[in-house]
Design a protein around this nucleic acid. Sequence first.
DNA 1: GTTAGCACTCAATTAATGCGAGTGCTAATC
DNA 2: GATTAGCACTCGCATTAATTGAGTGCTAAC
Lengths: 341, 341
Amino acid sequence: MLSERQRMILSAIVDDYIRSAEPVGSRSISKRGDVSFSPATIRNEMADLEELGLLEQPHTSAGRIPSIKGYRYYVDHLIRLGGIGEQDMMKIRAFFAEKMNLWEEVVGHAATILSQLTNYTSIVLGPEMFNTTLKHFQLVPINESSAVAIIVTNTGHVEHRTVSIPEGIGMDDIQKIVNLLNDKLSGVPFIKVKSVLHSEIGEELGRFVDRCEQILDMLEKTLADDAEPKVFLSGATNIMTQPEFKDVDKVKSILDMLEETPKLMQLFQAVPEGIQVRIGTENPVEAINQCSLITATYSYEGQSLGTIGILGPTRMDYGKVISLLDYLSKDMALFMARWYK
Amino acid sequence: MLSERQRMILSAIVDDYIRSAEPVGSRSISKRGDVSFSPATIRNEMADLEELGLLEQPHTSAGRIPSIKGYRYYVDHLIRLGGIGEQDMMKIRAFFAEKMNLWEEVVGHAATILSQLTNYTSIVLGPEMFNTTLKHFQLVPINESSAVAIIVTNTGHVEHRTVSIPEGIGMDDIQKIVNLLNDKLSGVPFIKVKSVLHSEIGEELGRFVDRCEQILDMLEKTLADDAEPKVFLSGATNIMTQPEFKDVDKVKSILDMLEETPKLMQLFQAVPEGIQVRIGTENPVEAINQCSLITATYSYEGQSLGTIGILGPTRMDYGKVISLLDYLSKDMALFMARWYK
DNA sequence: GTTAGCACTCAATTAATGCGAGTGCTAATC
DNA sequence: GATTAGCACTCGCATTAATTGAGTGCTAAC
């Protein structure tokens, strides 16, 4: 579809613009070593590329900048993945060599590293719980009317929640319940816990204690909203170092979006496995229509565990970020595999 | 020290400047109902107030703005606490009426409410753990070499941590350890856990299992960094709505500071009980030398549990925020008292 | 097909100008 | 003696005008 020369020129423009944030003109392209045509020739090609919708002109007497479609073509066909630098690799290695003893810590720390390495904003989701199994359940009474319910998964993830105990249930009842639940629920995948709770345990629980419905109710609620993965953000302010975001209002709408978890989740809706690039208006959230989001999923035994995302300007360094995410998500998967053992 | 008229004028200037963010001139003060002097008279007083260091002039032909010292005088002597509005009170009541089942949820949600009501940034610290006692300890093995250690306090707070189990320790050993620890540590205040661990339990543990040192070590580490309170932020971007923070760089340094927990903690260092106002350079962190921080502590039975802070421009609405914090911190204390029961 | 040449465009920079809010001082007034 | 009207003065800010320069599109020559 595009001639070889057009591809070269488009590539050169995108590269230059990513570096400089300035519209790039025919002369500066011509002066690069890799494209040996006169400015006039390049101008002609640029006009063609603009007609194809791959480039645009901020105003008549300025150079060209890539359009969304231009970035898309670049990412799909022209990008060269150079792999990641020695230093970056060292830092990632050092990170995974660290001893961490909280899952949240791993994911949160990964977000920090990523934002530091890229100088963009990193958003890490995870880990998802639905393919984990229940390992241990515990009810710790705090006073007469409330207790702390604790759930431990096979992955070492802990969720807890204060629950109120229905009146008329004593300590020994609670112990019975806990024992029963541990018996029946150990090893049960998280998604199935709810149905097992009803089908198998309901009747049996009725034998031990009255008011079993209330207890089931409570348990269900306890389990209900643990499904949604947690969000870890880092380097949210990095966007401010970009020259195209010198305007406070633009930045505010982005940061506001990042503070709102539901919007953030929307952003990650339907992210496919592997690496995905969403450029500008390809994103489903208006606030970041001038940004690009690159995501990578990390998984364990074929099951997706979570998602790592880098949010930057549309003019972001796609090659570097994609390489980095590819590398890190694979390392992350390895790390998780070791973690699960 | 200041004449009644000077106090009126200073008060009027601070009030006006807080509203408008513009240097206020003699004429506009004169036109207010409450100060019935001619602009010329007011100008003379303003010159005096400037000499006293309470006002300053951005440039010769501009009005006056309060200096840090001016704000300080205003907060200490002139401020009128109008109490809080009907609507705000309703929202706070509604908030505390909600059923929440995680301590983190309470504190986090309180931060959200506060930032919404004030349109400033809210920072809530807490809850501190050192006057809570240990209620329950549990070790849940995940696989041969690691387990999850869970600690529940009498306040329903849960901390957990993945720990590796020293080799050669079996399931029954673990059960013994857990039982022993629960026996000995239940009801022990958190700060004393460490010493009790050494003095009372060390020897006894030795009887049951070898390698007790390694286990003690692990436990100690588990307890070590739970002391530091968690930080909940909300409305971090609100600062951007202030006209004096239209500059991205100023905003960035503030938001960067907020992202760094250690710096944040430094900000709250040595905050006294009750309500405290820190204006501009009175703050120990440079990034917010153009901001004011108002803090209130909330406590239970005389023991401070945590701190609520509002960060805004020096030109913030001190009266409103102080009233609000006063009200909310008291309600928070009541809520906590009910929580503890 | 490629390129040199040239007229043309238009944002960004700089300089000049006028405006107006506000001051400080002085002299008149209460 | 305190207050105020009057007035010259200052200085930031907004507007306009002039200048610059990077970059284009087109045409004609190579």
